[in-house]
Amino acid sequence: MDIRQRINRFNTENRPFYIVDHDSGEYSLCLAFSFLDGEYKEFGQDAFNRYALEINEPVVDGRGMFTHGSGYEWQAVFEKAFEGDPNSGRIRYDCEAGGFFCYADSLPLLEDFGTRFRAVCMDGEKFAEIVSAALKEDAGQQCMQEAMCMGGMK
């Protein structure tokens, strides 16, 4: 099976995640929120909404936008899901508010992580637990950084 066939198979079997071949020896695993439709329209969003309620924040803001579930938060969740995996350090991220994007120079690596991450996402309870743990940890780190910055400003 050639690279295009492998990517097509992955993209079919692992919707809404998809892999892109950049024809440079680099591949990306993607979840672009603007492309989500049908049964995947709000893929994973329930776990982020549960997190918002857990920390006593509104699920949507004044403009009707979800308060949690940005690409940056998906990155924190992905990193938490594979915490301690020796190959996770081979992945680079380029997330944005509207999507989760990570890169590697190994198609098998991204196929493996992508398949495993989708399985985690499809397990609602497990995914919600990882979202909560990852975002709480991420918020704690941000708070520490802000405190250090503010402490240095005195």
Rank of each mutant, 00 (worst) to 15 (best):
R90A: 14
E96K: 15
R92D: 13
S88V: 15
G99W: 05
A81N: 06
D85M: 00
E79S: 00
Y93W: 05
K126N: 13
E83Y: 09
G69N: 01
Y103N: 08
K80L: 08
N87F: 12
C95D: 13
A104W: 03
A97F: 04
Y103T: 04
K126L: 12
S70L: 03
F82Y: 02
G89W: 02
K80C: 11
T115G: 14
Q75C: 11
A119T: 12
E79C: 04
T115A: 14
S70N: 07
P108A: 12
G124I: 06
S106M: 07
F78D: 00
E73N: 06
P86N: 04
E83L: 13
Q75S: 09
R118A: 10
N87G: 09
R116W: 08
K126Y: 09
R116V: 07
C102L: 12
W74G: 00
D105K: 15
G114R: 00
T115S: 15
A128Q: 09
L109E: 09
G114Q: 02
E129I: 04
F101V: 07
E96H: 15
A97E: 09
E129R: 15
F82A: 02
G89V: 08
A104C: 09
R90E: 15
D85C: 02
A119R: 09
S106H: 03
G71T: 02
K126C: 12
F101T: 00
G99F: 06
